[in-house]
Computed example of a mutant assay.
Amino acid sequence: MNYTLHQLKIFLKIFENQSITKASEELHLTQPAVSIQLRNFQDQFSIPLTEVVGRKLYVTDFGKEIALAAEKILKEVDEINYKTLAYKGELVGKLKFSIVSTGKYVMPYMLSNFMSQNKGVDLIIDVTNKAQVIESLELNKVDFAMVSVLPKKLNIERVELMQNKLYLIAGKRGLNNAGLTKKKLFEQSPLIYREVGSATRVAMEQFIIKNKFDVRKKIELTSNEAVKQAVIAGLGFSIMPIIGLKNELMNNDAQIIPVKGLPIITKWNIIWLKSKKLSPTAKAFLEYLRSEEEQVIKDNFNWIDAY
Score class of each variant (00 low, 15 high):
M1W: 05
L5A: 09
H6D: 15
Q7A: 08
L12R: 15
F15T: 09
F15M: 06
Q18N: 15
T21D: 07
T21C: 01
T21P: 00
K22C: 02
E25R: 14
E25K: 10
L27K: 02
H28N: 11
H28I: 04
L29W: 07
R39C: 13
R39D: 15
Q42I: 07
Q44W: 04
F45T: 13
V52N: 12
V52A: 07
G54E: 15
R55K: 14
K56F: 07
L68M: 11
A70M: 08
K72W: 09
K72M: 10
D78C: 03
E79L: 09
G89S: 07
G89A: 05
V92D: 06
S98Y: 06
I99Y: 12
T102H: 08
P108I: 03
Y109Q: 04
Y109W: 05
S112Y: 15
M115C: 09
S116W: 10
G120D: 08
V121H: 12
D126Y: 06
D126S: 13
A131S: 10
E135K: 13
K141E: 15
V142D: 10
M146N: 08
L150T: 13
L154D: 08
I156C: 02
E157F: 02
R158A: 03
R158G: 02
M162W: 05
N164W: 10
G171Y: 00
G171F: 00
G171V: 00
R173E: 06
G179S: 09
L180G: 02
T181A: 04
L185G: 01
R194E: 03
E195L: 06
V196Y: 12
V196C: 04
G197N: 03
G197P: 02
A199N: 07
R201I: 01
M204R: 02
F207I: 00
I208W: 00
I209V: 15
F213N: 03
V215C: 03
I219D: 02
E220N: 12
N224R: 00
K228H: 14
Q229T: 10
G236V: 02
M240G: 00
I242T: 01
I242M: 00
L245A: 04
N247E: 13
E248C: 05
D253T: 03
I256L: 02
I256C: 01
P258D: 13
P263Q: 04
K277N: 14
S279H: 08
P280S: 10
K283M: 07
R290A: 10
E294T: 14
E294P: 03
V296Y: 06
K298L: 11
N300L: 07
D305L: 14
Y307H: 13
Y307N: 14
Y307I: 10
